[in-house]
Structure formats: C-alpha cells, structure tokens
Design a protein around this nucleic acid. Sequence first.
DNA 1: CATATGACGATAT
DNA 2: AATATCGCCATAT
Length: 113
Amino acid sequence: MTQKPIEQNFQEKVIRLIRNIPSGMVATYGQIAKCAGNPRGARQVSYILHALSGKEKLPWHRVINSKGGISLKPRHGYELQKQLLEDEGIVFDDDDRVDLKRFGWLNQGRLDK
DNA sequence: CATATGACGATAT
DNA sequence: AATATCGCCATAT
C-alpha cells in the first residue's frame, strides 16, 4: 500500500500533544509535528498554535523552535513567552536559548553535572 | 483553482 | 558561527 497515512487528525493530535507537555518542559515544533505524524509539518504546528492557542487554551509558550529559542517577534509575544517559561523554571542562556538537553520534552538528556 | 504566507527545519555558503 | 535559500504543508484570500 502506497497510501500515505493521511492524518486528518493532525491538528487534533498536535493539540493533544501540546496539552501533554509537562510544566517546566519545552517541545520543538518539529518534535510535535513528528509525533503527530508529519515529520515535516513543523510549520503547520506553528500555524495551528497561532490559530487555536487562545481557543483551546494550549500551553503554547512551551513550544519553541529547534534552536531552543523563541521564534516570535519582539512586542508580539516573544517577551511574554520567555517570561512564562522562566516562570515555570526554564532558564535562558545569554543567547536567549533554552537548553533542550535539560528542558526538551522527550529529550531529557540528563547531564547531571 | 492559483497564489501567498507562516510562532519551522535542514542544508549550503 | 551567522546568514541565505530552499523545501514542506496546511490555511487564507
């Protein structure tokens, strides 16, 4: 079967996954998209978030890009997201980046220094 | 139906 | 390492 597993529930899955992100953790768009069945659907995740973040009451602030940084533009949520993450215990380095090795969801690379 | 866009990602330079 | 460009795919117009 060459049928591609069209996941019409992609959006629903994404929402569910985001809701499953534990507090104090962050997930990347690509990670969520992959778990939802579309390894290349990172952009769609962002679109879904933008569309339903307020309606579905999703912890959108726990979703960041693969660099561990916030993709939002300043004065447009960037500061808000950063603040929310810091409020949950997430730490940003001097590059405004989160250590995915420690806070990355499903990627808890325990450094245990 | 065609074109444009986007809270991304990977690769090339 | 930082910037530029292309690719992906759903939604909007």
